[in-house]
Structures are given as structure tokens and as C-alpha cells.
Design a protein around this nucleic acid. Sequence first.
DNA 1: GTCTATACGGTGATAGAC
DNA 2: GTCTATCACCGTATAGAC
Lengths: 201, 201
Amino acid sequence: MSTSDTGYVERRQGGETRAEIQRVARELFTSKGYEATSMREIAEALGIKKASLYYHFAGKEEILRSLVQQRGAEAENLLDWIARQPQQPELLRLAVLRWVESFSKEKLKGIRFISANPLLMDAIEQHPDERIGSTLVAIVDALASLLPERSPVTVLRLRMALLSINSAVEAAHRESFTDDEIVAAARANAAAAIDALLAHA
Amino acid sequence: MSTSDTGYVERRQGGETRAEIQRVARELFTSKGYEATSMREIAEALGIKKASLYYHFAGKEEILRSLVQQRGAEAENLLDWIARQPQQPELLRLAVLRWVESFSKEKLKGIRFISANPLLMDAIEQHPDERIGSTLVAIVDALASLLPERSPVTVLRLRMALLSINSAVEAAHRESFTDDEIVAAARANAAAAIDALLAHA
DNA sequence: GTCTATACGGTGATAGAC
DNA sequence: GTCTATCACCGTATAGAC
């Protein structure tokens, strides 16, 4: 609040304005969808004019890109972690549950945003080194070799287990479930799916 | 091809044009999203001009409504079927699998359309007697009373089991899985989820 | 950093000829 | 039933004053 001679506060506010835009945009993109949300609506929710947004972001799509780029690092982390573990079938369960459990309250907002705009991810053409869906594919590949019986159906079931947290968010949509309940349900169903996959016929 | 004096062929073509519009619109709404699809694009895909669409449908939203109304009857059927069965825990498994299995090749297109446009369903405000999501809620309510242990988490897990077919479609997105594989994976994971719910602690 | 004003294209939709 | 022509509107984005 003080230190008006350093300019520090002003610069910090600028950074926070950017973050505020991202927060409001993510909320609107989640509730109304990316295409149905206009720059004017974002600006109004912030109490500014829409032209002011273009000082902080080059355009609507750049706001979107900044949101998706915030994610992706944790998928890389899981991939690295998997490579360092003993490669046995039990790793399937450990990796899937580690992934599901990693979604705390704050990260669920990212899941909701993605769930509300499923087509954006493959339409956005990220830079080759910043892909997010492809590392999830790599995780599935790494884990699929541990399956007792590897077939298209079992690989798809493994994918479903990894995406349990997304399924839980979507199943809870428009109903009154807490974030803790959503994570608990995702964990339980993911565990059940992995159990069935490991108990091979 | 003949019978040019009855007018029957012409009338039948008219009906087929309406169905063609619905087919093309559903494809575009599925691949690009409803908001991102313009009336001009739908018309071009059909080889006609945009204004001609308004002869068959009052507007873009009416095309959408006609698509969602095509579904919903089968949910009602399941609800009726459930009411006529002996009310025991095993009915959980039978009902969920019956629901998942009911999605043949053709009906999966409807799931893909819904999965690609998740926000449309609660934005469309259907007539009170034509709701689709609410009957699914009624199904969950009817089945939840059969749960060995009823809690928010188990109810949510039951919801997830019912929506396994949706999860399978989304998990298969952008990957090369056949429709049969998708249904098989959905059935397997739904069964695993129900098994875990019935094996109460 | 935010504002007003504006350019420009695409959108859903309608009117009326054929 | 399909067309051409046209409408009003809203979208993103930019220019330039303050």
C-alpha cells in the first residue's frame, strides 16, 4: 500500500491485472463456453472496457492459450516418476491413483474448464514442446506395457481409469457435490477399474 | 423413382431433406461445436444456400432442439423397466449394464454430439415434459435406494457408472478405437464400478 | 493503463423473385 | 424449395487521446 516512490506496487498490480483477467476469463469460459464468451463480457466482469484487455493480451485466443499452458507440467512429472519406478503391474495402480489424487481444490477448476470446452484442446495446435494431451498419451503408453493382457479394450479401460477425475467432475455437473466428494468418487472408481484390469482372466 | 403423378416422391424428398440437414448439422456440431458452426457452413456442406435452411427450420436453435429431442425416450424406458423389476441390489448391475449396452453404433453419434457440447444441455431449457437430464437423475434416485451404503460419494460413483458410456467415448477421443471396443470398455468399467459398490465394507 | 471511437467482417435472419 | 439481396447486429481488433 505504501512505498509509492519505488513503482513496485504499480508493477505488481499490473501483473495481478493479468492474473485477474485469466481468472475471470476461465470462469466465464467454464460456465458459458469459450466461443459463447465475448471480450466485452470479460471486460464488464472486471469493470473495465474491452479495448483495455488488448493492452494485457494480444487477443482472445492468447488469453485461452495462457490458460491451457498453465497446465501440462504435472503430466510431465508423472511421466518422469513412472520411469523411475520398478516396472511391475502394481505400478498401474500407484500411478493412476497418484494422478487422480493430485487434483486438489484449485486444480479441479482446470478440469472443469477443460470439461466445458472439450473441442478447444485439439483445435489449438500448441507448440511441439508444450503439448498436453500427448504426454497423457505417453503415460498411457508407458503403463500399457504393464497390463496383464494388452488389447485395444484394456488400453481404453486404462485411459478411462486415468480420466476418472474428469468423469467424476462431469458426473457431478449441475448437482451439489463437494470437491472432496468428487475426488473420493474418482479415486474409488479408478481403483475399481484398475483392480479389474489386474485380475486378468 | 416413378409415380410422378402422385406427388409422393416429392413429399418424401422433402422429409429426407430435413433429415439430411439434421445429419450434417449433427456432424458439424460434433466436430466443431455448436457455437463455432455457422448456418452458412451447414448449407455449404449440403450444397445449398444458407437462406434455404430457413424453409425447413425456423432457425439455428431449432435445428439444435430437434437433435436433442430425438433422444430421451430411451431414458424413460429404462426408468419404467426399473420400476417393474424386483427391488434388490443386483438390479443396480442389471440396470447399469442395460443402459450401457443399449448404445449401438448409431446411438454413439448422439453421445459424441453431447460430449462435444456439454454446456448446451443445461442452456436449452426444454419443455417440462421433454427433459432428458432430469430423467437420468430420476434413474439415479431410483437406483440409489438399492445401494448397500448410501452416501454422497456412493451416489456419485453410481452416476459415474451410468455415464461410463460417455466416459468411454471421451477417453477414445482422437484415438483410433472402434465403436465395439468403446462399448466393451464402457461395459467392463461399469461392471467393475458396480462390483465395488455392491461389495460393501 | 484505460478510455472513446471506429473499422471491418461474419452472423442469424427476413423479403421477395422464380 | 431454392435462390439473390439485404438487413441489423455483434464479434474481434486497432488507433489514438488522455
